[in-house]
Design a protein around this nucleic acid. Structure first.
Length: 212
DNA sequence: AAACCGATTCACT
DNA sequence: GTGAATCGGTTTC
C-alpha cells in the first residue's frame, strides 16, 4: 500500500465495518480545498461509531435527517454541529446496511501550513495544529456545507488520499473520548507518539446506574 | 411548543 | 480541575 500513497481511496475500499475502517484510516491524508487555499492533514487519531448496538453512536436510535448520511454510501463525509459552536467530521463506513462512521479526532498538517496559520493565528505548535475533532474541522474549514460530500471524487472539495504505511506496532487502542456510555468499548485508535493525539477524558454523566 | 443536552474548546483557578 | 459559551436536533409534554 505504500506504493499507492497519494492516490485517492475508492469507495469500495472504504465500505467496511467502521471498526476496521478506523484502523485503515490512520495515516491516510484528508485534503480540503476552500476559497482561501488547500490544507491536507495526516490522520493520527480516530474513533469508530457503529449502528444499533452502540449507544454512543448517533445512529443508535435510528435514521433521522441529521444522521442520514451514516447509512451510506461509504466514503462520504458526515458533519455534525455540537455544543452550539463546533463541527465534527466523520468518514462514513456503512457496511451491509449497518450505519456507521469514523470520527476524525486529530491529524498532523502535511501541507497548506501557511493557510492554517492564517486561519488560526493563535494556534499551538506545528505538530499539534489539528489536535481535537473540532479544531481539525476548523483547520480544514469543514462545516455543514460539506456534509455528505464524496471523499473519493477528485472534483470534491474534500478528498481522502492513501497515506504512507503505518507501522502496526505504533497503533494503539482505547475507550472513546468524551462518551458517557459504552466506556468498555475500545473503539478509539491512534498512532503512538504523535503530538496531535488528544489526552483521554471520559464522558460527563454515567447513563446507567446500577439499580440498587 | 418547550426542555434537554452533547463524539468540545478555551480561559481561568 | 472546573465552568462558560452557545444552538440545533431530538425527545417529551
Amino acid at each position: 500500500m505504500s506504493g499507492d500513497a497519494g492516490r485517492l481511496f475508492t469507495r469500495a475500499e472504504l465500505a467496511l465495518d467502521p471498526v476496521d475502517l478506523a484502523q485503515l484510516l490512520l495515516g491516510s491524508v484528508l485534503e480540503a480545498t476552500g476559497p482561501d487555499g488547500t490544507v491536507a492533514v495526516r490522520l493520527v487519531e480516530v474513533e469508530a461509531y457503529r449502528g444499533e448496538d452502540d449507544p454512543a453512536s448517533h445512529c443508535y436510535r435510528g435514521r433521522t435527517p441529521r444522521n442520514a448520511v451514516m447509512w451510506g454510501p461509504a466514503g462520504h463525509l458526515y458533519v455534525y454541529f455540537v455544543y452550539g459552536m463546533h463541527f465534527c467530521a466523520n468518514i462514513v463506513g456503512s457496511h451491509d446496511g449497518v450505519a456507521g462512521a469514523v470520527l476524525l479526532r486529530a491529524g498532523e498538517v502535511v501541507s497548506g501550513l501557511d493557510v492554517v496559520r492564517r486561519r488560526r493565528p493563535a494556534a499551538r505548535g506545528t505538530g499539534e495544529l489539528a489536535k481535537g475533532p473540532a479544531i481539525l474541522t476548523s483547520v480544514l474549514r469543514i462545516d455543514r456545507e460539506q456534509n455528505g460530500v464524496d471523499l473519493t471524487d477528485p472534483a470534491s472539495p474534500v478528498r481522502l488520499h492513501v497515506g504512507e504505511r503505518v507501522d502496526p506496532e505504533r497503533i494503539r487502542t482505547g475507550p472513546r473520548v468524551g462518551v458517557a456510555m459504552a466506556m468498555d468499548t475500545p473503539w478509539r485508535f491512534w498512532i503512538d507518539g504523535s503530538p496531535a493525539v488528544s489526552t483521554y477524558r471520559r464522558g460527563g454523566k454515567r447513563r446507567v446506574r446500577p439499580a440498587s
